[in-house]
Measured scan of single mutants.
Amino acid sequence: MQRVNMIMAESPGLITICLLGYLLSAECTVFLDHENANKILNRPKRYNSGKLEEFVQGNLERECMEEKCSFEEAREVFENTERTTEFWKQYVDGDQCESNPCLNGGSCKDDINSYECWCPFGFEGKNCELDVTCNIKNGRCEQFCKNSADNKVVCSCTEGYRLAENQKSCEPAVPFPCGRVSVSQTSKLTRAETVFPDVDYVNSTEAETILDNITQSTQSFNDFTRVVGGEDAKPGQFPWQVVLNGKVDAFCGGSIVNEKWIVTAAHCVETGVKITVVAGEHNIEETEHTEQKRNVIRIIPHHNYNAAINKYNHDIALLELDEPLVLNSYVTPICIADKEYTNIFLKFGSGYVSGWGRVFHKGRSALVLQYLRVPLVDRATCLRSTKFTIYNNMFCAGFHEGGRDSCQGDSGGPHVTEVEGTSFLTGIISWGEECAMKGKYGIYTKVSRYVNWIKEKTKLT
């Protein structure tokens, strides 16, 4: 034993070699072989497995989906700052455009905790909710729209109204504003409101030439003092309507412009014939205590009207009353817009006519005020429907199939267009061939041609 100890002390290297040989010859039971080890760690190889990531292109799944990435790591994937920024906006807080917040056709661009709407022409605001041009839906104005110097929408209202708090709607500024039905039992019968379409306001006024200088022999019209197929109006439903009495009662109609003036057809009036105007009328054979009678003290036909040349060209006249009318729910003026808007309103496509005229061709006159909704007829169809001249200051309205029309005794009465609950004068009943005849239409004086003249002559002093 002493000898062994001496050998170990003198030859430590020998001992180490012996131990190493023993270990190498022993069977290893701690580690699995290569094949079995792979069965336990069965993990798919990654895209760049075996390579240094710093030297390969980034992978979106590896960089940002398996674990949260930084902007720089995302930049490695896209290799483009702009594309990385677009991805980053949604990656950080989701897609803010998912709810489609942009209105009126706006395009949404996502941002971090926010979004941006790219608005089409005519709109602005956070969600493109603000109209900035009158060309689109009248700028959301209830009545009139004008573009300011910086191309912003400025709404306005006709006389007797003021802008509401929203700067879009119009509200009454006087007790009985024009064009409004205020009798409670008839307010439910107000005709369907007309909503502004998209309009090209630059070209809204037709490029028409008034044929002022045409000389033409007097034409022989049949029954051209021209509501057939209409309905009984309720008291106060058309408070701007008046009836004219002269040699015979209810020979023509008219509309209240203001307390002192009536507008009617020029062919209705004769110099030297006494005319009485009755406002607030409903049943011409009954006294309903809503009527107001006034005498006409002055007749002003349009300066281009000449019955000797043509009885229905420039067929418009103004009547001055001896005493002002007292405005109330049964006696209310009709609204008159400017030339541009009167023309736009007419193009809405349908209007209402009213009167006490004959209820059928050569038949009896109506006792109760009649009204009828009539569609506008395109000019080409209008011209083809008659052998008589249709001037540019006239328009056609009615039904091709016949059966409904204005008729004798309705002449001078109103053709009105309702705009968001307020009625505007767009025409004056003038003439036609018979009444409600198939293929024939009622012919009306186009008020847009005469609004400046009306307003100039009827100013209240």
Rank of each mutant, 00 (worst) to 15 (best):
V4K: 12
N5C: 14
M8W: 13
G13A: 12
T16D: 03
L24R: 03
S25G: 10
T29P: 02
V30S: 14
F31M: 15
E35R: 09
N38L: 09
I40W: 06
N42I: 10
R43A: 13
K45T: 06
K45V: 12
R46F: 07
S49Q: 15
G50R: 10
K51E: 13
L52K: 12
E54P: 10
Q57C: 04
L60D: 15
K68N: 15
T85V: 08
F87Y: 15
W88V: 15
K89D: 13
Q90E: 08
S99R: 09
S99P: 10
P101Q: 03
P101M: 03
C102K: 01
G105W: 03
G106W: 00
N113Y: 07
W118S: 02
F123W: 14
G125W: 00
C128H: 00
C128P: 00
L130T: 14
C134F: 03
I136E: 09
R140Q: 14
C145T: 03
N147P: 10
N147Y: 08
S148E: 11
A149L: 09
A149I: 12
N151K: 12
K152M: 11
C157T: 00
E159K: 06
E165V: 12
E171K: 10
P172F: 05
V174M: 07
F176T: 07
S187V: 11
T190F: 08
P197G: 10
D200A: 12
D200S: 13
S204H: 09
S204I: 05
E208F: 07
E208G: 05
I210D: 14
I214D: 07
T215N: 09
Q216A: 14
S220C: 06
S220R: 06
V228C: 10
V228N: 05
D232E: 14
K234S: 14
G236N: 06
W240E: 00
W240Y: 03
K247Y: 05
C252D: 00
N258Q: 03
A266V: 02
V273N: 12
T276H: 08
V277T: 03
N283S: 08
I284T: 11
K293C: 05
R294T: 01
H302Q: 03
N304P: 02
Y312A: 05
Y312H: 09
L321C: 02
L321P: 00
E323V: 14
P324E: 06
S329W: 05
I334Y: 01
I336Y: 02
Y341A: 09
T342R: 00
S350E: 15
G351N: 07
Y352R: 06
V359Q: 14
V359K: 14
H361T: 14
K362G: 11
Q370A: 03
Q370V: 03
R379Y: 11
T381H: 13
C382N: 02
R384G: 10
S385M: 09
S385V: 12
T386Q: 10
K387Q: 12
I390F: 12
F395R: 02
C396D: 01
A397C: 03
G398W: 03
H400N: 10
H400Y: 13
R404T: 14
R404A: 11
C407T: 04
G412H: 04
H415E: 00
H415P: 00
E418V: 10
E418S: 11
S423K: 10
L425F: 02
I428P: 00
C435R: 04
K438R: 12
K440P: 07
Y444G: 02
S448Y: 03
I454H: 01
L460M: 15
L460T: 06
